[in-house]
Amino acid sequence: MSIPPRIVVENLKKSYRIREGGSWRGRMKMITALEGISFTLEPGEIAGFIGPNGAGKSTAIKILAGILRPSSGIVRVGDLVPWKHRIAHVARIGVVFGQRSQLWWDLSVAEGFALLGDIYRVPPQRFAQNQTRLVEALNLEAILGQSVRQLSLGQRMRAEIAAALLHEPEILILDEPTIGLDAPSKLAVRAFIRDLRHHRGTTVLLTTHDMHDIEALAERVIVIGHGRILTDSPFETLRATTLSERILEADFVTPPPLCAWPYGVIETERTPRNLTLTFDPKRVPAPVLVEQVSALPGLDDLRIGRPAIEEIISRFYDSHPA
């Protein structure tokens, strides 16, 4: 199996000229979408590429896909420049945009797959093998004969992922790949992406607002905001450096008693049968706090967890204002 190409992005910039006020009489204004971002993706890596709306993610993704030409900077996928070598580049990558379809609305899913096979010039035997594998893995048997316009959003997204992989791309760019999927389908898609990386060495760049996708798939997270890379680190490093707190939830059979908590412990919620504490394990070790809570009368159960990833990212943005 060939080694997937390395992706190199250096000092990538993109600016647009727009007319203010939405009128042809308005003055032209320059908008900077990317202010010089740089990162490298190694072969077989799964990286999350996240940021709020307007951060510059979509612009960067479109440049990587060869759809847009940057104002300046370097992008190389192996030995190719995406916007200069579009035909060779698109044969190497698979792209799924959650809000756009690469399948044809009036064709059946099977007809769309066949047409894509012809466009990518996939040999018939290889195409049949790939389609069989993808249909089974993504549970598409029941919708192959349906037109794309008849599909639910979840069904269409699974078909779109299959369509992007029919030509066995070395690089997969996923923009909101689990949008509209129910919980079992999300789990299936995540498992499929992990399998691609494990068995085929596929390099995956994932952008999504579903932080559970990031937590489940990406060992590395690139956070973009205001057109700049705010951080590029392993996910666990981001979690530890941005929000190292832990959460202790305690259930009681009687109302939880009032307590004086040590420095570093904050009571964040109290109900007639529940108590939630946020604490810094560097100041108050978890076993010490567990021992104190365990001694309270009426305790029924307790759990220690981490803050939700959404809160981690939110705190990170708060600490990096424009």
Score class of each variant (00 low, 15 high):
residue 4 P to H: 07
residue 4 P to M: 05
residue 16 Y to R: 06
residue 18 I to Y: 10
residue 19 R to L: 01
residue 19 R to I: 05
residue 19 R to A: 00
residue 21 G to Y: 12
residue 28 M to F: 14
residue 31 I to P: 02
residue 34 L to E: 07
residue 37 I to E: 04
residue 47 A to S: 12
residue 47 A to M: 15
residue 51 G to T: 05
residue 52 P to C: 01
residue 59 T to E: 05
residue 67 I to A: 13
residue 69 R to D: 02
residue 72 S to I: 02
residue 74 I to K: 15
residue 78 G to R: 02
residue 90 V to Q: 13
residue 90 V to Y: 02
residue 91 A to C: 13
residue 92 R to I: 05
residue 96 V to R: 03
residue 102 Q to Y: 04
residue 113 F to K: 01
residue 115 L to S: 07
residue 116 L to F: 09
residue 117 G to P: 06
residue 117 G to S: 10
residue 124 P to C: 11
residue 125 Q to T: 05
residue 129 Q to W: 06
residue 131 Q to F: 03
residue 133 R to Y: 08
residue 135 V to S: 10
residue 139 N to G: 10
residue 143 I to M: 11
residue 144 L to Q: 09
residue 151 L to F: 04
residue 159 A to H: 00
residue 160 E to F: 00
residue 161 I to S: 03
residue 171 I to Y: 08
residue 175 D to A: 05
residue 181 L to K: 03
residue 188 A to G: 06
residue 190 R to K: 05
residue 191 A to M: 03
residue 197 R to I: 00
residue 199 H to M: 05
residue 200 R to K: 13
residue 205 L to S: 06
residue 208 T to R: 02
residue 211 M to T: 14
residue 216 A to I: 07
residue 216 A to G: 03
residue 217 L to F: 02
residue 224 I to L: 11
residue 226 H to K: 09
residue 233 S to W: 05
residue 236 E to Q: 12
residue 236 E to S: 14
residue 240 A to V: 02
residue 242 T to M: 01
residue 244 S to W: 01
residue 247 I to M: 09
residue 254 T to A: 13
residue 259 C to Y: 03
residue 265 V to H: 04
residue 272 P to H: 03
residue 278 T to R: 15
residue 283 R to P: 09
residue 285 P to C: 06
residue 286 A to E: 15
residue 287 P to Q: 08
residue 290 V to T: 12
residue 292 Q to D: 08
residue 293 V to H: 01
residue 297 P to I: 11
residue 301 D to R: 11
residue 306 R to G: 04
residue 306 R to Q: 14
residue 308 A to F: 06
residue 308 A to Y: 09
residue 309 I to F: 15
residue 315 R to W: 08
residue 316 F to L: 15
residue 319 S to P: 01
residue 320 H to K: 14
residue 321 P to A: 10
